[in-house]
Design a binder for these strands. Structure first.
Length: 192
DNA sequence: ATAACGATCCAG
DNA sequence: TGGATCGTTATG
């Protein structure tokens, strides 16, 4: 029996949320139908003292949703062409989020292939920019609920493989923190 | 007002 | 390994 993760789940400490998200099913319903996939890789970004977190300069126009209640989307645009999907965590006032870095496609694969102009299922969502393109997620989705009809995460009882902690990818500062988590047995992660 | 840069991706 | 490409943020 599958159950949707509640907003209370996202209000927990970010590292706990990040690890627990591995193996869960992300679901997005749009006008064309249903897209879903298993989360296999994430990274945590926590607070104003995390030098890689967008909250490192305090609250700004872009990151304000990170300061809000957990259980909402934070999508931002980077490198002039890519969108990044985050789940806001912790209680209101604590700026933190989990970056979704890789997903194993489950439902709506043909639509993802069309969105990405790519056939290989292993390369459809194996990166934060790729999965946003596959799911059609954009900045205007920022602030939407993760417990609504459009976006949700489901625990379908499937157990992930071994979850490992590594350093985060693509950052210059904060490299020492082991805040990247992924299923070491999954072939859908961005890289090992 | 302006310039530097970034939680990336893909081609070569 | 380098280039694409542009919104965000800091700095003058």
């Amino acid at each position: 029996m599958a159950s949707k993760l509640s907003c209370d789940f996202y209000r927990q400490p970010t590292l706990d949320v990040a690890k627990t998200l591995i193996g869960k099913k992300f679901v997005h319903r749009n006008s064309k139908g249903k897209l879903s996939g298993r989360i296999v890789e994430v990274e945590a970004y926590i607070g104003e003292d995390d030098p890689a977190c967008h909250a490192r300069f305090g609250m700004t126009g872009r990151n304000s949703v990170m300061y809000g209640d957990g259980g909402h989307l934070y999508v931002y645009f980077i490198y002039g062409m890519y969108n990044m999907l985050n789940f806001v965590t912790e209680d209101e006032g604590v700026p933190a989020a989990v970056l979704i870095r890789a997903i194993e496609p489950l439902e709506g694969i043909s639509e993802m292939q069309a969105n990405r102009a790519c056939i290989d299922e292993r390369q459809l969502c194996s990166g934060p920019g790729k999965l946003c393109q596959a799911f059609g997620i954009k900045v205007s989705d920022t602030g939407k609920s993760l417990t609504g009809a459009e976006f949700s995460v489901v625990d379908d009882g499937i157990q992930p493989g071994q979850i490992v902690a590594r350093t985060r990818i693509g950052i210059r500062q904060g490299r020492d923190l082991l805040w990247r988590f992924y299923d070491s047995e999954s072939k859908f992660v961005s890289r090992k």
